[in-house]
Nucleic acid binder design. Structure first.
Lengths: 146, 146
DNA sequence: ATACAAGTTCAAGTTAACTTGAGGTCAAGG
DNA sequence: CCTTGACCTCAAGTTAACTTGAACTTGTAT
C-alpha cells in the first residue's frame, strides 16, 4: 500500500503516518523510489494505536508496548489501565447524569441545586485527571487540501 | 482567602490560579497591597472548572459558560455534552472490557485472539477522539518547591 | 519527452494548558 | 531599619501530537 491508501483506509493524514513512522509506531517495509510502501497489516497497528490513544496511552507509552518482536503487551499494565478506565467510566457516568440533570434543573442557578452541588463534589474528588479533549470541528482539516 | 489558601484548598498551584484568573475563569475580589484576595466561593468555581475539564470541556468552553451573571449554562449545550459523554462512556466500557480480556488472554499473540480483534474494531470506529491523558506521575511537582 | 500530481525531507510552526524565571513590591518580625 | 518570604508581573519556555511550508524527486499520463 502506498501512503495515500493507508491514509484513506485509516482516516489519518499522510503527515501523521510519517510522524508515526518517525516515532517508531509503524514501519514502512521498503520504498518504491522515494515512496514508502506499507504492508497492509500496518492497519492493525494503526487500529491498535488508535485503541491505545482512546484508552489514554500516550504515543510514547504505546511505542513502549510494541517491542522488537511485533506486539508484546505488558499484561499488568493492561490490567492497570483497565482499572483506570473503570474509574474514569464511573466518574463520567456521574457527570453525564449530573449534566442531564443540570440541563433540566429548575433551580434559579445551579449553585442552589442540591443535585448539581452533589455532582460538583463528585467531580471535585477527581482533580488528578487531565482533560480528555474532544476534537474540535475545524472544518475541512482532513489532510486533503482542495 | 489569599492565593496560597486557595491553592492549598484546591490542590492547584498558585500559577494555575493566576492563569485561570487571566483567562477569566475565576475572579479575585480585590487586593491587599499587591496580593489577590479571593472570595471563598471561588472554590465552587474551581470545582466547576474541574468538572468541566473532566467532562472534556476546554478552558475556553468553560469560560464561555460563565457569562457575565455568574454562571449561566446553556442547557442545550449541557444536554449535548451529556450525550457526548454517554457515547464516550460506552466506548470506554468496551475498551475496559477489552483490556481486561487482553490482560488474561491465552492466545499466543493478541492478533490471534478474536476478542482482542473485536476490541480493535470497536476502537477503530472511534478515531475522532483526542487522548484523555492521565497525569504523569512527575514526582514532587505540586506547586510547592522545597 | 515532459508535465505534474503525489511523494519526499527537514525545519519550523501550532495549540492548549500550564510552568518557570527574572526582577520587583510589600508587610511583618528581629 | 533592614531582611525575608510570600506575593506580584510579564515574557518566555514546555510538552504532546501533529501540521505546514519550502524545496526537491519520481512514476505515470499525455
Amino acid at each position: 500500500m502506498d501512503i495515500s491508501e493507508v491514509a484513506k483506509a485509516s482516516g489519518l493524514p499522510a503527515s501523521t503516518l510519517r510522524f508515526y513512522e518517525e516515532k517508531g509506531l509503524i514501519q514502512s517495509n521498503g520504498r518504491s523510489g522515494l515512496r514508502r510502501l506499507f504492508n497492509p497489516d500496518v492497519m492493525d497497528r494503526l487500529a491498535l494505536i488508535s485503541l491505545g490513544r482512546s484508552a489514554g496511552f500516550s504515543l510514547d507509552e504505546i511505542a513502549a508496548m510494541f517491542t522488537s518482536e511485533g506486539l508484546e503487551i505488558n499484561r499488568a499494565l493492561l490490567s492497570a489501565k483497565a482499572e483506570d478506565l473503570d474509574k474514569i467510566i464511573k466518574e463520567l457516568t456521574s457527570m453525564r447524569d449530573g449534566l442531564r440533570h443540570a440541563a433540566v434543573c429548575k433551580a434559579p442557578n445551579h449553585f442552589e441545586c442540591p443535585t448539581f452541588l452533589r455532582l460538583l463534589r463528585i467531580a471535585g474528588k477527581n482533580r488528578s485527571r487531565q482533560p480528555n479533549q474532544l476534537q474540535k470541528n475545524k472544518p475541512g482539516r482532513d489532510g486533503q487540501k482542495p
